[in-house]
Design a protein around this nucleic acid. Structure first.
Lengths: 219, 219, 219, 219
DNA sequence: TATGAATGAGCCTTCATTCAT
DNA sequence: TATGAATGAAGGCTCATTCAT
């Protein structure tokens, strides 16, 4: 017959967690703590404490630690895709424009979801095999998409890179890395950041703007 | 009455670990298991088992799990630096040549120490604060070195990039990423890999080979 | 963002539990699950789920898990006694007839309440001390009653057993065991089962039918 | 970096557990505590405490709680079989003698291993399915053996029971029950107990000693 | 009547580490 | 060098129970 015990309210100082808002608080805390210590280094006890809730609520909302991670990663990947698709839908049908749109979306995502996006890079391997497989499949469509854009540019003679494969990898690698160092409070604004990375990407694929549309006579 | 106490020698079949080679076996096992599961996900029990040794030997050679990781990372970083220094020592005093040497050394290191180099990227954060600080200091000299090379190139007018900082980051990011995907058994030889990444790096810094030494009219 | 919070009504498909029948559903579920997994192995969550109700309703009807068990056991014991008393009330005042009536009632109870009767045997010890004491007192009156019947038979010279105590224990033990193996759907009908156990019991007490009622004069 | 903590020696008063004798102490404690509270009601913490050892040693010797139970049950069943086989090997080839030997062995086992034998009856269901199956198979050979003895007696006309199946069940049930009530310190000696149960069993099968070997006048 | 959200205690297990040999 | 036995701490998870609605 369990008694109530001494729940020292001091432990839950930041208890902005009003009844019913448990889930959001947990997700937030999980994100931060997973990011800080890694999946195995993070204890669900600490996650709960970070959320200002008891250990057990976590299991009310999620089946366990693993599922918690999964939920975070899926959410982040969803957001990433949404950004890309929106940007590409708005872009002109021209390789440079599409590449720029892709890079812009990716950079903005890395900044907007700095923490989660790092999680997705680092903690992927801690997903259970089955979950991992499904996740990776969805994620791998991104490099494929980028590759198509590059190939298209090469085919149309706008991108001169002799190594489209390396170019694709390089562009993603440098964009992904942003989440590791960018400091929103710093000097570099997001729009400047985007501009620079778009430039960098176009450089990497060796973008050669086509001769001006030969209007009359280019002389 | 089934027991587990007596470690059946059968479990250590792969005991190529002839007496006296304990240390090497442990390092190898630790490297693989840390890489596979991450620092917190790896148990020293499994590391010992992987080395074909008993748990306790590990403590004969190392003070603990933490020190084991440290030893691995230091060793990897040493190797990385050795490679860079050797390459740069042999390179001509010319930004493009120096950048090429740097990239070549880095790429080769990522391939030569594929596993350890990944460890150094991923498990860094699991070093104890004091160890971490010393390590990072040493590691951060690498980007600084690269930055100097780039700045020099820009100053001399050989590199046209308007964003040397981004260039530096991009070059390191793409080189680092190699360890994540390169397959030594695949089609791409190391020398080809190096060649492509050197090209990529020169592209990123917007290398402009200086006009042939303007023999006659310099005007 | 997968959650678990909202109990999806689909989970309660078998909701034959039309509003208002909660109590019966809970008792049924509790009986089955306690029987299947034992008191400590059964979770009230599963009991509630088995009843097609939410966890909390359980507490509307019962003070807790312990009381739930108690209610089940008391109910079963009541039934057992009712059967015995009815049977004995209808039996002739003759040891063999009374023993037969007792055995018949007991066997029929073990079949009629197969599950609950097993519960009463196995989960008794999980009652809280005070409850346990009261329960055992009531239950122990059964062997005592049986013992009286046997002693009476021995006194009257109808039962020849030299070990009335062992006989009593043997008879109860074998009747109790019925609940462990009897399959209502099988070949053996309840009336046959009763007949055999009555025979067995009479054998155990070494029943010797008295010399025919000395009609005229046996001389 | 874990420190030693305050191991209050007081907690391990009965520490007759000298280094190296851990296994035996654990088995003993496990037996008692499983018997007292049932598999699910017993915590391995309490088992360890009962053994005067730390929680973790348990896992040095056994894979877990489940395996601990399994080890106990197997050991008990082994003992039971050994007893039966020895007894039957020494018995004459005559149904009554064999039945007596079987009952004697069974009764003695129930007394000798009073606790474990109860465990085997009650906690069986808590074995994992695979383990359970193997165990039950071995255990079920016992009733079969008893049944063969009875059938043989019936065939030879020495046992008159019309219900050999019920007889077999009754004999085992009453013998099994012994472990529930017998008190070694009480009035009834083991040899008396055996004698009574042999008598009871012979009664149950309705043993009819064959007519004295018709020496001279068979009339 | 009935529910969803939340809690504290406790459980089984694993882990890094130590110590005597 | 190397090992088996043992330990305290912590980890993930389940559980009976409560409370506000």
């Amino acid at each position: 017959m369990a008694t109530r015990g001494t729940a020292d309210a001091a432990d839950r100082q930041s208890r902005a967690v009003t009844r019913g808002n448990g889930l959001a608080a947990i997700m937030r805390s999980a994100r931060d703590i997973f990011a800080e210590r890694g999946y195995h280094g993070a204890s669900i006890r600490d996650i709960a404490k970070g959320a200002g809730l008891s250990l057990s609520v976590l299991y009310y909302y999620h089946a366990g630690k693993q599922e918690l991670l999964h939920a975070l990663l899926e959410d982040a990947l969803d957001d990433c895709w949404r950004g890309c698709e929106t940007a590409l839908a708005a872009a002109a049908d021209d390789p440079a424009a599409r590449l720029s749109a892709f890079v812009q979306a990716t950079v903005e995502y890395r900044v907007r979801r700095q923490v989660d996006s790092l999680l997705a890079l680092r903690e992927l391997r801690n997903l259970e095999p089955e979950r991992l497989e499904r996740f990776v499949e969805r994620r791998d469509a991104l490099p494929k998409l980028l590759r198509e854009i590059i190939d298209d540019g090469v085919a149309r003679g706008v991108f001169a890179t002799p190594h489209p494969d390396e170019a694709q990898r390089a562009i993603l690698a440098m964009c992904n890395a942003i989440a590791q160092w960018y400091q929103p409070a710093g000097d570099l604004s997001v729009s400047d950041l985007v501009e620079r990375y778009v430039h960098l990407a176009l450089t990497v694929v060796q973008h050669r703007p086509p001769a001006r549309k030969p209007r009359a006579k280019s002389r």
